[in-house]
Simulated scan of single mutants.
Amino acid sequence: MPHTPNRREILAGAAALSAAPALLHAATPAGDPSLKGRTILITGCSSGFGRIGALHYARLGAKVIATMRGLPRPEAESLAAEAAKDKLDLDIVEIDVTSDASVASGTAKALAIAGGRIDTLVNNAGIGITGPVEVQDMEATQLIFDTNVFGIQRMLRALLPQMRAAKGGQVFNISSQLGRVIVPGGGHYSATKFAVEALSEQMAYELVPHGIDVTVIQPGGYPTKVWVNRNAYTGALKARSDAALLDAYAPFTRGMGTEDGSGRSADPADVPRAIAEIMAMPAGKRPLRRAVHPGTRPQEAINRVSAEVQLAWLGGSPTLGPLVKAVHD
């Protein structure tokens, strides 16, 4: 069959793609993608999507560098034990995404373990703090933006240079349904995830000439430890908040720090499975966004309209049009 060039080949040239053969993987006969030859760094692997994903990708053949803050800790020990039991290629490295120094030292160690090449970055680390906007003091505001937005920026600046040098790579940023739609009383969580959405889309356009794909993952609500962690942060915020301010927003502040995520039965492994599927797609043909949840996905309508608007607005530009079309085609 004659070869039809994909959009990355048209924009960046076939040489750029051939420099990154590890990014092209086919599915196994059983339906699970093979990730053999890929090296993946994941942030926030102490629990939830990060931990499940680290084990899942390693079981599919990838070399995985699972990172988390506060080492040593029991979560790291149990993850290492499970990886050793299954003879998985998985290393654990300390990275606190809120710290410039920790990101610098952790990514340097990860690159040394990986032989200087990490082809896939999964920016998974994130926190939630609920409550009305006015109740969010600057301590809470700075913490959630430092983790959910600035943490991603730190990781990008640390690992994109070696991806650009290799003329290929892949970045996944974990957003949320709430990166597109709003729930009153949700604190600054949506504000940070809206920022992640914008940052990711802009970066996707800018990285087209470098052969690096960007995908935003938009999970719905899943029963992970995120609820426990969120309650700790939210409970502390409520404890230091003025009673009169809390009373002014009583419908939204009454339950601050007590939500446990009960009633949510969706399988958290949905998210790593979706990420692995996208990893296995040919470079240049991966989606910019993927909504993940077995229930309703209200953000999908917004995703479609957003793509249509970007194409209508910039698609005809001689300089920006090819970038926008490469991402949305």
Rank of each mutant, 00 (worst) to 15 (best):
163 M>T: 11
202 Q>N: 14
293 H>Q: 02
171 V>F: 11
217 I>A: 05
291 A>K: 00
168 G>K: 04
307 A>D: 11
105 S>I: 07
296 T>Y: 08
323 L>T: 15
170 Q>S: 12
249 Y>E: 05
186 G>N: 15
99 S>D: 05
155 M>Q: 08
320 L>F: 15
251 P>H: 01
242 D>S: 15
145 F>T: 00
120 T>P: 13
277 E>F: 15
193 K>C: 09
54 A>I: 14
12 A>F: 07
327 V>H: 01
179 G>H: 02
122 V>P: 03
121 L>P: 09
170 Q>V: 13
50 G>D: 08
190 S>I: 00
193 K>T: 05
193 K>M: 05
253 T>F: 02
10 I>P: 04
88 L>F: 12
218 Q>Y: 06
16 A>H: 12
272 P>T: 06
218 Q>V: 01
21 P>T: 04
172 F>Q: 09
214 V>S: 11
277 E>V: 01
311 L>D: 03
239 A>Q: 11
123 N>A: 13
272 P>C: 07
304 R>W: 01
212 I>P: 00
36 K>G: 14
73 R>V: 14
50 G>R: 09
25 H>C: 13
247 D>F: 00
165 A>F: 00
29 P>F: 00
67 T>N: 10
257 G>A: 03
169 G>N: 11
135 V>K: 12
222 Y>F: 08
48 G>R: 02
13 G>W: 12
325 K>I: 01
230 R>K: 06
110 A>W: 12
51 R>W: 14
169 G>D: 10
79 L>Q: 14
236 A>F: 03
50 G>A: 09
16 A>L: 09
187 G>L: 13
136 Q>R: 10
263 G>H: 06
59 R>F: 14
272 P>V: 10
151 G>D: 11
240 R>K: 15
211 G>I: 00
320 L>Y: 15
172 F>P: 07
289 R>H: 11
317 S>Q: 05
131 G>L: 03
34 S>R: 06
268 P>R: 13
324 V>F: 01
144 I>V: 10
212 I>W: 02
287 P>S: 12
299 Q>V: 10
72 P>W: 12
279 M>N: 07
94 E>N: 06
229 N>H: 12
181 V>K: 00
187 G>I: 03
171 V>D: 10
8 R>Y: 07
239 A>V: 03
159 L>K: 05
177 Q>H: 10
97 V>A: 11
40 I>W: 07
300 E>G: 00
115 G>Q: 07
226 V>H: 08
297 R>L: 12
230 R>N: 07
192 T>H: 02
212 I>N: 02
33 P>W: 09
311 L>K: 06
168 G>M: 08
158 A>T: 11
133 V>Q: 08
242 D>A: 07
241 S>V: 03
246 L>V: 02
12 A>N: 05
46 S>M: 07
144 I>T: 09
89 D>N: 13
310 Q>Y: 08
186 G>P: 08
167 K>M: 03
